[in-house]
Nucleic acid binder design. Structure first.
Lengths: 219, 219
DNA sequence: GTCTATAGCGGGATAGAC
DNA sequence: GTCTATCCCGCTATAGAC
């Protein structure tokens, strides 16, 4: 649907930016209009209300996201490589939709909120299950240490990317920048996260049964 | 300052819960009153306005937090052990202040928002710097792989704890629970995060010297 | 399609009785 | 200290001119 109204797009872009920065409740219609350089009332010409504008913002990107997931994660991929691609895929959203990671993260954080979108829940659940399966597959072929709980491990992976983007303003300050983190640093962090994760997943290098006195989780 | 008015406390508790769940903007004075089982107007007897109630909510906990940091992180601690304590300390906030991790996380995510509290920035910056220093110290004595960027690594560590709590409702669903994650699972996840992190930090196994003996819980 | 004006409502905050 | 009533403002959303 090439619904190419300029103002419609301007509104979507502005809303995307503001919702990502401030969240849904803190963002006013007037602010969206101002950010878009457009009369605020036009919002109601193109969208039924604020909430459905929010949904439109999310849905506009979900297609691309799902498509990318499908093409970049063909079925037969080795688990470790698939995991790496998922991490990089999350960061890659930044190009072309820089606000999206933060917005998605917010969506998960405000999961209970009235404006939350069911599609996102399902998408998150699907991705989560997929990562869990990849980890189990990796454990089966001894490429991932088998004392890791797949579900918890999946959370560890996602966290590293998600938090980096939600906490963007704080993170950027901590890294010594004003405003947003420059793209080169995003890439460097992504490389780091991949390396960090792969190191954590790697099985202990000695005999498999030699020492598992590692850690007090008695099961 | 044993300012022990019951209603004041009720208001603080209610506000803490709601701000953590919904964020500042989405939380109304009336909702706080209802949650506290108290007349909403009383808010203005005990606090100047909504924003300063929010600050009071944060400040009430910061003392405990800082004190715990100081006592549980004496200066001479080995880097890896100090790092473990930081991770566990974050999770331990849950007891006695279950909403706090999520609230702090929100504070960092909404850093730009008008209501953000400077103290929190400094606290976060201090903690960040401290973790970075610990990592550098660990690298110097060859207990942490030296190809890791200390700043990025610090983010990886914090992320795992922070995101688990911000995304609480989503995470809980993904783990198969309704509502909140049960405390036992929080503990198990914390154990996981510690193990995951230590595995990622461990230097490549070429040097035998790196095999230091750690006892996460000496039983 | 875009704009102005405004309705209508809900939010934060205050006055003052008790 | 607590409660009722209410003010005022800003926000969402609509009506209707152009």
């Amino acid at each position: 649907m090439p619904d190419e109204s300029q103002t419609r797009l301007a509104l979507l872009d502005a809303a995307e930016a503001l919702f990502a920065r401030q969240g849904f409740a803190a963002t006013t219609i007037k602010a969206i209009g101002a950010e878009a350089g457009v009369n605020p009332a036009l919002l109601y010409y193109y969208f039924p209300d604020k909430e459905r504008l929010y949904h439109a913002v999310l849905e506009r990107r979900l297609g691309t996201f799902a498509r990318r997931m499908a093409t970049e994660l063909p079925a037969g991929l080795p688990p470790l490589e698939a995991i790496e691609r998922i991490l990089r895929g999350y960061a890659a959203m930044m190009h072309g939709a820089p606000q999206m990671p933060r917005l998605l993260a917010r969506e998960l954080a405000d999961h209970e909120a009235a404006h939350a979108l069911p599609v996102i829940r399902e998408l998150a659940a699907g991705l989560f299950r997929r990562i869990c399966d990849l980890i189990r597959a990796g454990q089966r072929i001894r490429q991932i240490r088998d004392d890791l709980d797949p579900r918890f491990t999946a959370i560890s992976l996602v966290s590293q990317m998600a938090w980096f983007f939600v906490a963007q303003p704080a993170v950027s300050r901590l890294l010594g920048y004003e405003g947003t983190v420059p793209p080169t640093q995003v890439e460097r962090y992504t490389d780091h996260a991949v390396a960090f994760t792969l190191a954590a997943l790697a099985p202990a290098r000695s005999r498999p049964a030699a020492r598992h006195t590692r850690h007090p989780t008695r099961s």
